[in-house]
Design a protein around this nucleic acid. Structure first.
Lengths: 179, 179
DNA sequence: CGAAAATTTGACATGACTCAACTGGAGTGG
DNA sequence: CCACTCCAGTTGAGTCATGTCAAATTTTCG
């Protein structure tokens, strides 16, 4: 990422460092999301809570991932999601306005964000396809192949929720074919 | 979209017009996707086919939507999907290279694509959340609210597939609460 | 050690799928 | 205009995958 002095300066000014302790919120349901964050270290989750109080994990992230609620930040609407730290986290946060600023002014940032977008969009498509096409066991197999790291960092009930199944079903799937 | 003469020229050169008759492929599973397309008129679907020969619709599009396999076009890998015309279509196609060219050279194109990206990413997130959190009936309700147009353009068995349920289940859901 | 969190297990309920049959258009061709 | 076929949609009966609930177990960590 070749940045000259002046560009580097702009980038530094746009980001703020932030720390979260385990279980602390980055975003709470009902609030408008003001910042995106880049995870320097730690692990986070984004989830909705339904009428029955059940959490549904829409996104997991660890080092080098970005987190934030696109819909809320762009539309300026209250978020339907919570984002919190699953491990203690070091974050770099940036507002939407500053993001646009950087995008407009620094070509290499633009390239980078574009690539991120692409990856994100590809990953979403895969997950969607897997969710509508496959049974629980194959979805878990896919997950293990795509994100082996996550297995080490998140407990199984969170992974189950990410896969759209219950922790009991995941437990049975892991044991071997359901009996 | 304010474009000067020269920019307009670049844009025109980048796109090619293309017509597809109903059922004709825009992309076939196994081929590398070379172009994205903008739907001027008509309706298209993108779907995978599993081992049992069942089609799983990952994307539907009508006028003013874009279609293409991001993963294949960016990674240059054979696509896992088919994209075909559900109605006769008029398309504008553009290669990845030309897209990047336009992005780099014309700020207003960049803005536009960026907004498209945002919308797409938001829509994906919603669909994903709906798919992992909700039962068939609520998912259908969501769909009707978000995409009433699609109901007019695609038969129910395609919508069922998009929702990740069978046509029989959709039929029962539409009838009223499952009996 | 003791409490809280994570995981597993079993019995049972149920939503969704499968399969096969049937209905009702919308063409198409004789 | 009718017979014929193709496609979309509906229905019913039986089955299966996954969810629910409650309890037992294991692990983690202060």
């Amino acid at each position: 990422m070749p940045l000259n002095k002046q560009e580097e300066d702009l980038v530094r000014k746009a980001f703020s460092a932030k720390r979260l302790k385990k279980r602390q919120y980055f975003l709470q349901q009902g609030d408008v999301c003001k910042h995106f964050c880049f995870i320097v270290s730690g692990a986070m989750r984004q989830y909705s809570i339904d009428e029955k109080g059940i959490e549904h994990v829409v996104q997991l992230g660890i080092e080098n991932w970005w987190m934030g609620d696109r819909e809320s930040i762009v539309m300026l609407t209250p978020s339907k999601y919570n984002i919190d730290a699953w491990e203690n986290c070091e974050l770099l946060t940036i507002s939407h306005a500053d993001t646009i600023c950087l995008l407009d002014q620094i070509p290499s940032v633009r390239k980078m964000l574009q690539i991120m977008e692409e990856r994100n969009s590809i990953a979403n498509q895969k997950r969607l396809n897997s969710t509508i096409s496959l049974a629980a066991d194959s979805r878990y197999a896919d997950f293990v192949r795509e994100y082996p790291d996550f297995l080490q960092r998140f407990p199984l009930h969170i992974i189950a929720s990410y896969l759209g199944i219950t922790k009991e079903t995941l437990s049975r799937v892991r044991r071997g074919t359901i009996l």
